[in-house]
Design a protein around this nucleic acid. Structure first.
Lengths: 334, 334
DNA sequence: TTCCTTCGTCGAAGCGCTTCGACAGGGGTC
DNA sequence: GACCCCTGTCGAAGCGCTTCGACGAAGGAA
């Protein structure tokens, strides 16, 4: 193994100079830096991560808690995760994968062993049991998701409330008077997952404000047909549906068609989901984008700022961005 | 931060004794061990990961390369990943998440900086460009997937060839004479992804051996209806289908029904996919299980053996395990 | 000219842990 | 009784890196 002293010898300088040349923490003459870089290249030197972590008190590793619980949409979660990894690499950090199972203990462990410098936590509940821990930990952390009380924390997320409102208001503008929300599976609400709850709030409030009749339906994957039938039965005047359930978008479209409803002629559909998904189904869906890549990126960048000692806002809510596609149209009064 | 010397002082022993009590690498009297453990508990001691890695030449971290390329089924991949993380934790290891993007460089980097002790690589191609690297690296590695040449490597996977054969033979036993394989998206074959290729081989060979007529159809997600129509048009005698594409299982079932075919009365369906999936669709599918959890577990266990210096087999192929469900039946001669 | 900075570099002291060699004491064995 | 070999413990020497204080040289201010 080639180490810093080897590089130093080859470049004709001291190890500390190599270190400073690498970190830039003290001025080094251009000529010396060049010699050091050459030596590094020639020898194929790579600093030892453990030694670095020990001496520098920084491991350059972030922990990411990936939620893989019942009811979540795995591909969507992985979009966040990939964005986090990619952005972390841009900032010269690696990402340690923790599963939800490990829970509070896992977070404590990686924090206290100094395995990681910082934490990113996904799938936040309104009253998440991990919040006290995160507040007390000496390590900086960022939540992807907005709990009920964000004091003393740092959170990033899409403004789901505004997203749901945007969907409803879009339907209202098109003349719809009766709308329904097809949501995530029931267990997601039982856990009081923050984003799901906010969508319900935004949806209901906006519908009330617009004087629309509305209903909310948590929905299992695979239950598309059942929900569709139920909707038509219980809410015969229904002409607008907001879908907040990635797995159901396609099936729901099929189910409505199967029941003889044309989208958007008889029924307008909007969704909150990744743009790619909205574009890839049979009838492209008017949707508020779920900007996973941007959220992941922001999370890492906020963390980097905190690591650098900069103050950051407690909550960063990305404004909803709606794209009109083929699935929504004016209500046709029959 | 509480360190080993604090524990040593409190327990009235030397730091080395604490270390040995913890690692068990030298005999320690029961009484001393107890005092050390008490001290650890009372002080809340956690060994510093970096220091440990530096002195012990082991980081207790594994790298996992997670494939998130076009055409892969994310939930299936994550089943492997979760199993790897869970098993790794049981062996007191953590898992560093690498994306495919990082490629060969990423593997080299984490290996040479001693950030990780070992590597697990998924989504292996028959002629994977990472193989030479893995062969030369001083770090042990395990592939999830079986490349064309496995000499000098360690690989675990379901025996996909045998799995495909089992599906075909099952259909043959039921009297079917004309079968089709609905496979992964085309890009998966273009990349020469190992498991996909082996399924095709196994399927074709078994069909030939049984004297059945057969055809193979790579298939995009969302193209279910198109493929179904094409199959009926081009292969009118078709009565048996093998599906090797998680995303398509449900849609394909719907598509055949839509075309007026009853499963299994008119058409028998078998699949290679996780059992959960096979059970959760409308008509439970006779399937060969994709034992993600077991494969992930085996991968980690093989790695642990290699880290311990034990020799392990180059290829571990798990035998296929078929479960008959409602989707297959005898061919009804009409 | 003298004094004070700033720039560029070096040496040494750790960071917190593991591990090696040494050694005291307590049995066995012959 | 002499010898040897375990068992259980300690002290010290690193592991490879960062960082702090120091210092010579060069440049500016007075």
């Amino acid at each position: 193994m080639v180490k810093i002293t080897d590089v130093a010898r080859r470049a004709g300088v001291s190890p500390s100079t190599v270190s400073y040349a690498l970190s830039g923490k003290r001025p080094i003459s251009e000529e010396t830096r060049q010699r050091v870089e050459d030596a590094i290249r020639e020898l194929g030197y790579r600093p030892h991560a453990g030694a670095r972590a020990l001496a520098g008190r920084r491991s350059n590793v972030l922990a990411l808690v990936v939620p893989l619980r019942a009811g979540i949409h795995v591909p969507t979660v992985m979009r966040f995760a990939v964005s986090v990894v990619t952005t972390a690499r841009r900032h010269d950090h690696d990402v340690l994968l923790l599963t939800q199972e490990e829970g509070v203990d896992g977070l404590t462990r990686v924090a206290e062993t100094a395995l990681v410098d910082a934490l990113i936590v996904m799938d936040v509940q309104l009253d998440d049991p991990r919040l006290p821990l995160l507040r007390n930990l000496e390590l900086p952390s960022v939540l992807i998701g907005l709990p009920a009380a964000s004091e003393g924390l740092t959170c990033v997320d899409l403004d789901f409330r505004a997203a749901a409102e945007a969907c409803v208001e879009h339907l209202a503008r098109l003349g719809h008077r009766s709308v329904a929300l097809v949501g995530s599976p029931p267990e997601v609400y039982v856990r009081r997952t923050a984003f799901a709850q906010r969508v319900v709030q935004g949806f209901t409030d906006a519908a009330d404000r617009s004087g629309m009749s509305s209903s909310v339906h948590p929905c299992e994957p695979g239950a598309a047909r059942g929900v569709a039938e139920q909707l038509l039965r219980e809410q015969p005047a229904l002409t607008g549906v907001v879908v907040h359930n990635e797995a159901l978008l396609g099936p729901l479209l099929d189910a409505f068609e199967h029941l003889g409803l044309r989208v958007p002629a008889d029924l307008s559909l909007t969704a909150i989901c990744p743009d790619e998904l909205a574009e890839s189904v049979r009838v492209p869906i008017t949707s508020v984008a779920l900007p996973s890549a941007e959220v992941g990126e922001r999370a890492v960048e906020l963390l980097m700022k905190k690591l650098a000692g900069t103050a950051v806002p407690e909550a960063t809510l990305l404004p909803p961005w709606m794209t009109e596609r083929a699935s929504t149209g004016r209500r046709t009064v029959s």
